[in-house]
Simulated assay, not measured.
Amino acid sequence: MTLDPSFIWTAFVQILPAIPTTLYITIVSMFFGLLIGTAVVLIRIYKVPVLHPLAAGYVTLIRGTPMLTHLLLIYFGLPMLIDSLAESFGWSFRSVSIPMIGFAYISFSITAGAYMSEVVRSGIIAVDRGQLEAAHSVGMTTFQALRRIVLPQAFAASLPNLSNGVIGMLHGSTLAFTVSVVDINAQAQIVASSNWKFFEAYLAAAVIFWGLTVLVERLTALIEKRINLYNRGGVT
């Protein structure tokens, strides 16, 4: 077997249309994962009755099992649940109406939620508790203090870890191929299957993933620079 450099470029061009799918999975999963993670960490920090042990169990369970397992459980289990409920309540909606990428969105959001809860928790811990007490002293409620003071600083402090989470989800999105979602890696396999030049096709996919990863790193650096300017009072 010999390397075909010309096919690397051919594969690269043919894989490009799959980039939006990978980005959709990454962005949607991280957005909802961050929302879930923030809710979970606040429940755990403030020890909300009933919900606190459920939140702790959720984090332990998700972090203790593989991402692929979550996807397969959602893919095979959710249709059973939906169809059972639909039959019981006479709904017209059935699981076949769910697009394949929808299972990836749901599964990866649940996975990201557990990991993001720990990221946000580390950010909240990094914020001086005295700021929350000061907010209470001027009449703010806990919710107002969290929204206006604590969470913005927590997210700023967590930015490097959030960036790592985005990159991890970007790479983890390749698992969506197991439920017939055509992402970058899946497209590379499709392209290579016509002539068995898998090495060249996956090399092209690797270059695309590397480029996207560098883009995330650069965007993170720009955001961090902006935050540091605000912290120093350089932006009004």
Rank of each mutant, 00 (worst) to 15 (best):
residue 1 M to E: 10
residue 1 M to D: 08
residue 6 S to L: 08
residue 6 S to P: 00
residue 9 W to A: 04
residue 11 A to P: 05
residue 11 A to D: 12
residue 15 I to A: 07
residue 16 L to M: 08
residue 17 P to W: 03
residue 19 I to P: 01
residue 22 T to H: 02
residue 23 L to A: 11
residue 24 Y to N: 09
residue 25 I to Q: 05
residue 26 T to V: 01
residue 26 T to L: 09
residue 27 I to C: 03
residue 27 I to R: 10
residue 30 M to V: 06
residue 32 F to M: 07
residue 36 I to R: 07
residue 36 I to Y: 08
residue 36 I to H: 05
residue 40 V to T: 14
residue 46 Y to R: 08
residue 49 P to V: 06
residue 49 P to W: 11
residue 50 V to G: 02
residue 50 V to S: 03
residue 55 A to Y: 14
residue 55 A to W: 15
residue 58 Y to D: 01
residue 59 V to Y: 04
residue 62 I to L: 06
residue 66 P to A: 11
residue 67 M to H: 12
residue 67 M to T: 12
residue 69 T to Q: 04
residue 72 L to D: 01
residue 76 F to P: 00
residue 76 F to L: 03
residue 78 L to W: 10
residue 79 P to W: 13
residue 80 M to R: 10
residue 80 M to T: 14
residue 81 L to Q: 03
residue 83 D to S: 12
residue 89 F to K: 06
residue 91 W to F: 14
residue 95 S to H: 02
residue 96 V to E: 11
residue 97 S to V: 05
residue 97 S to L: 06
residue 97 S to H: 11
residue 99 P to M: 01
residue 104 A to S: 13
residue 107 S to A: 14
residue 109 S to N: 08
residue 110 I to C: 09
residue 110 I to M: 14
residue 111 T to C: 10
residue 112 A to R: 06
residue 112 A to V: 13
residue 112 A to S: 09
residue 114 A to S: 13
residue 114 A to Y: 15
residue 122 S to P: 02
residue 130 G to N: 10
residue 130 G to A: 12
residue 130 G to I: 11
residue 130 G to R: 11
residue 133 E to I: 06
residue 134 A to V: 15
residue 134 A to Q: 04
residue 140 M to V: 08
residue 142 T to D: 14
residue 143 F to E: 10
residue 143 F to C: 02
residue 149 I to P: 03
residue 152 P to C: 03
residue 152 P to M: 03
residue 154 A to V: 05
residue 154 A to T: 08
residue 156 A to W: 11
residue 157 A to L: 11
residue 161 N to A: 15
residue 162 L to Q: 07
residue 162 L to P: 01
residue 163 S to K: 02
residue 163 S to N: 14
residue 163 S to D: 08
residue 166 V to T: 08
residue 172 G to V: 06
residue 175 L to F: 14
residue 177 F to S: 07
residue 178 T to E: 06
residue 179 V to T: 02
residue 179 V to N: 00
residue 184 I to M: 08
residue 184 I to G: 07
residue 186 A to W: 13
residue 187 Q to I: 00
residue 189 Q to R: 15
residue 190 I to E: 11
residue 197 K to Y: 15
residue 198 F to R: 08
residue 202 Y to A: 03
residue 206 A to Q: 10
residue 209 F to H: 07
residue 210 W to T: 06
residue 210 W to N: 06
residue 211 G to L: 10
residue 212 L to H: 08
residue 217 E to Q: 15
residue 218 R to Y: 13
residue 219 L to N: 09
residue 220 T to V: 00
residue 221 A to F: 13
residue 223 I to S: 09
residue 228 N to Q: 13
residue 228 N to A: 15
residue 231 N to F: 10
residue 233 G to I: 02
residue 236 T to K: 14
